[in-house]
């Protein structure tokens, strides 16, 4: 766990964001909200990762920064794919919301 006290807000809010994102991803039928929720989850995770940079007492660890940057790139590509899919689905569904009820295969 983050030993330094000043990392705690990052860690805590990161976890909170993750849970919030998870909740939205699961419960909201609108696809755009789902995509955004995924990004919120991502941000939460990144914040937890960043809090790890404060390990120990010396210089901040640079590795998490690198990881987060890579993560953001990956998240952006994923978001792009998701949005592209959403756009393709838009005319089919007549909107960006998933139809109510259990989907058929």
């Amino acid at each position: 766990m983050a030993e330094s006290l000043h990392a705690w807000p990052f860690f805590g809010s990161g976890v909170l964001l993750f849970v919030l994102g998870l909740h939205a991803l699961v419960t909201r039928p609108h696809l755009l909200i789902k995509v955004l929720a995924f990004n919120v989850m991502g941000s939460g995770t990144f914040m937890v990762l960043l809090s790890a940079a404060a390990r120990g007492s010396g210089e901040p660890d640079p590795v998490p920064q690198a990881l987060v940057i890579t993560g953001i790139v990956v998240a952006v590509s994923a978001t792009a794919v998701a949005l592209a899919l959403m756009l393709r689905l838009y005319p089919i569904l007549g909107g960006a919301g998933l139809p109510p009820g259990p989907p058929e295969d």
Partner: peptide, 9 residues
């Protein structure tokens, strides 16, 4: 039922 997003989540 399991296919619903809520259930999955």
């Amino acid at each position: 039922h399991m296919r619903r997003w809520e259930v999955l989540g």
